[in-house]
Design a protein around this nucleic acid. Structure first.
Lengths: 175, 175
DNA sequence: AGTAAGTGGGTGCAAAATCAACTAAATATG
DNA sequence: CATATTTAGTTGATTTTGCACCCACTTACT
């Protein structure tokens, strides 16, 4: 359901193929959502037969035909409906915290390793987000759309930074 | 998969019924995972027929029989295997950030309302976490197990606090 | 006396998500 | 020249999750 709305959101910015949607998910949406391509294509099909999008086949000289998906007015309404229906509350879900919660089953050095490993990964994710942000933040304050999109990336950056601080605190005080 | 490990982790602390597991999820695990009770009972059944747990029916005078689930050695090994298999990296997934990402489709006052509403909810979640922490932090530094369990709650608290700061920043600078 | 909430355990079903493979041509890289 | 990678989309099988319902009995509330 959320995926359907996110796809509508992207189609609202520009008509797109499933393939392009997948690339957007991998590049700009990845900090708060991701999706398997099979799931994207199937959701796209659902959107079409609900009347939220239409398809037009665009032939290309060298590459396969593009199945361009265009949002309809009904689709735009559905999107706005979702946005107006109140702030969503996603259920927290982090397998790593589960590992930490039960990490006492491991010997001390393995716990340290677990935390260190996560620290490396978190730092890598943070670096990725920071480099993503470099491309946008100059004109981000300009229009509202860009500002809000950049803001979600900032959120992810803050979350990763907070996690690094937490990891350091845990590693320092672990008895 | 993750749910199965979390259940094993809880069974590792003490033998339990599905009902008790659900209560643990709702009270102490909720800041990083939650689970439907149907899902818990089914996963429990899977654990039993994989040989990771055994059931013993304990009759009670007044209340229904308890199907007490005990972790086996194989179960303990599976748990430790998961913990040793490297730090998990959960895929970020927050529908609210999706709403923010596309919020420019809404008129300005609706955006403010969306953010304000989320702020209220986030504050409520934070308050809940803070009150949960009050019951544990005195002896939390004592043994490693309690420390690690409390640490995951601290993580959730930091995340919620970071989100509040972010929300305030967004509301202040939104063009 | 009647209703709610708690204890304990389930079933059925439908969405949603994941994994893996398969098609098929073009272009880039070694 | 051979092997990836990119473009574009599809199918099948399986797992995970969520929601709604059902049983039966007990204690607490009003």
């Amino acid at each position: 359901m959320v995926l359907a709305r996110l796809i509508l959101g992207l189609l609202c910015l520009a008509p797109m193929t499933g393939y392009e949607l997948k690339k957007h998910f991998d590049s700009s949406i990845n900090h708060f959502w991701n999706a398997d391509k099979a799931q994207i294509y199937r959701t796209l099909a659902q959107l079409v037969d609900k009347g939220y999008a239409t398809v037009t086949t665009v032939a290309q000289s060298n590459y396969p035909d593009r199945q361009e998906h265009h949002i309809t007015d009904a689709g735009r309404q559905a999107l706005v409906g979702w946005l107006s229906d109140g702030a969503a509350q996603g259920t927290e879900r982090d397998p790593f915290m589960g590992q930490v919660f039960f990490a006492a089953e491991l010997p001390r050095e393995d716990i340290d390793q677990l935390l260190t490993e996560r620290r490396v990964k978190t730092q890598a994710v943070l670096d990725d987000y920071l480099s993503q942000r470099e491309g946008i933040d100059m004109r981000a304050a300009a229009d509202r759309r860009s500002f809000l999109m950049a803001a979600t990336l900032d959120h992810a950056i803050r979350q990763q930074a907070a996690e690094l601080e937490w990891l350091d605190a845990v590693m320092e005080h672990l008895p």
